[in-house]
Design a protein around this nucleic acid. Sequence first.
DNA 1: AATGAAACGTTAAGATC
DNA 2: GATCTTAACGTTTCATT
Lengths: 159, 159
Amino acid sequence: MDDMIELDSLDRRILAVLQKQGRISFDELGGQVGLSASAALRRVRRMEDAGVIAGYAALVSARRVGLSLTAYINVRLEKHSGRGKRTPMDDFAAELATWDEVVECVSLSGDMDFLLKVVVADMDHYTRFVMETLLKHPSVQDCKTSFVMRPLKSGVSVV
Amino acid sequence: MDDMIELDSLDRRILAVLQKQGRISFDELGGQVGLSASAALRRVRRMEDAGVIAGYAALVSARRVGLSLTAYINVRLEKHSGRGKRTPMDDFAAELATWDEVVECVSLSGDMDFLLKVVVADMDHYTRFVMETLLKHPSVQDCKTSFVMRPLKSGVSVV
DNA sequence: AATGAAACGTTAAGATC
DNA sequence: GATCTTAACGTTTCATT
């Protein structure tokens, strides 16, 4: 399951194409990298099986579905006070999954514990989320927000 | 070009499916949301044309291609010293596009100007990138890094 | 040379659009 | 009906013996 796989330059070109055009046909894909459809298919299947390609996704424009505000929130947790045997981090992680506003969350080195990426309709919704959901959570000590003013580069295809 | 489009609950269910299974057939997609293949296709094409679906992408596992270190870097730019009529921000944004290590970059409110998401093979590569590329750029004043210790939620399909 | 593995292209039947 | 997917089959290449 954890086997490293060798990727040659053709594999990498295939990945580059699929990251831009995830629903391209194997015929076209092969054409772009200089292979037949079946050869392209074989290589893609191999990378899927090896977990190099984790899956495929439609990219949804946040704006076009009415979500025009993006923010990053640094969160610091309480050091103690986990419920029962669970740590504050466990409690937080469990509830996180139920918050639709959070599209990305990583645990960090440094003074802050988590970085959340949050996408919402407007400032109103954002304020409600922070006040009535995030800060009300018993594991959360405090947080600090930076709002996204302009996206310069969006990397969506590395997981 | 900027027309808001009305999405009903069926459209939203279709989007949810396509965000998880971007290469699903329309037959299966229709089955999951209770539509025929052609009805599902019509709705998907409509959302593609409206820009709601910005595209499709294969999701590549960073680990499996040997990129096991992820970091977020807050960058502060020089306030002046743009070359010619261009601002430091223009200079920075232009060069950014050529840095493969940066998979995401947004301009932020607050004391820092940018947040970069960086994915590299190891700490060695990371150090080289910061010392020999990022900090050498004339627009960059200073930066501060947080390393990702554990990804809890990865949102890849909102753009 | 002979052998086997790996990767390619062609073909054709079935699935999908 | 046209395009796309996918498995079967034969060919080429190349490293090993």
